[in-house]
């Protein structure tokens, strides 16, 4: 169970760590952009979507089919569009005025409030599911049971991690992104279109938010604050891995997710949300730059 939650946190944390490390924006609306992605998929796979001819059968033992694929593509398009719009309308203007982390953080806080309110205005405060019914777990070996969906989620996480690694370290655009993160002025002087790089980074962050949102929706119930409650775990994973390090974020996500689930063996479940907080505090005291972060 911890592996699944950890995978979802890992994918989201990759987005958080890139946006934080490369753009200097601690995005406090990241969880809510995830939620937007979840609800877009919900719309497509639910009755409204079926009326438009989206729903399809299931893929073998998985709980979802073509409807989810269409939904995910639509979610990615809309969420990426949303964050690009926010960069152009809000963050770019604040940056040009000389705003830093604090201003970005407060702006993203306001944006997050608006997104949660909008989702509640449209869908209400209830709980929803992508697919009704119960899906049976299969037994891999003696005593180890896992749902097919969950194998899919873990596999997807590894694939996403590999993709982001290749993009960052094997393409020119990835190089430009890392250069912008190191020194925006120098990057600009070297002929890198930093505005374009920023848009690309936001798009990548939005892609991660949408994917993490879709994954979360497959695993759990869909609520207006599903993503928001993951905000601290997401940041904890990014900080543990080292801000700006996607590989670290994936490892951090798994540690946070598994840590949360394992903790309930020893402590009251009420303390479970405190685990990411404890991890952040411990990282700060022992190794402030995180596992794979660069020395600042």
């Amino acid at each position: 169970m911890g592996w699944i939650v950890g995978s979802i946190i890992a994918v989201g944390a990759v987005g958080v760590t890139l946006v934080y490390g490369i753009l200097g924006v601690g995005d406090f609306s990241f969880g809510d952009t995830m939620t937007v992605g979840m609800f877009v998929v919900l719309f497509v796979v639910s009755a409204e979507g079926a009326n438009l001819g989206f729903a399809g059968g299931d893929f073998g033992p998985l709980s979802f089919g073509w409807g989810l694929v269409v939904g995910a593509l639509l979610a990615i398009t809309l969420v990426v569009g949303l964050v690009l719009l926010l960069e152009v309308l809000v963050y770019r203007r604040l940056r040009r005025r000389g705003g830093g982390f604090f201003v970005f953080a407060i702006a993203s806080l306001g944006i997050g409030i608006m997104l949660r309110a909008l989702i509640q205005l449209i869908w209400g405060p209830g709980n929803f599911r992508f697919a009704p019914g119960i899906h049976k777990a299969i037994e891999i070996t003696e005593g180890v049971r896992i749902k097919p969906d969950q194998i899919f989620l873990i596999g997807l996480t590894l694939l996403i991690g590999l993709g982001v690694y290749l993009l960052l370290y094997r393409t020119r655009f990835g190089k430009a992104m890392r250069a912008t993160a190191d020194n925006p002025d120098l990057a600009e002087a070297s002929g890198i279109h930093t505005d374009r790089v920023r848009l690309g980074t936001w798009a990548l962050g939005g892609l991660m938010a949408a994917l993490a949102g879709v994954m979360l929706g497959i695993q759990t119930e869909v609520r207006f604050d599903s993503g928001f409650v993951l905000l601290l775990p997401l940041f904890a994973a990014a900080i543990l891995g080292g801000i700006g390090s996607p590989g670290g974020a994936i490892l951090g996500g798994l540690v946070v997710g598994i840590g949360q689930e394992v903790s309930t063996r020893w402590i009251d479940t009420g303390f479970k949300p405190a685990i990411p907080f404890i991890i952040v505090t411990a990282v700060l005291l022992l190794r402030p730059r995180g596992l794979f972060g660069r020395d600042t």
Binding site: G99, A107, M114, A117, L118
Partner: peptide, 16 residues
């Protein structure tokens, strides 16, 4: 929800 939407919007509008 409308009130919530507006207090979020006020933060962004005033910052900008």
């Amino acid at each position: 929800q409308v009130r919530q939407l507006i207090i979020g919007a006020l933060i962004v509008i005033f910052l900008l």
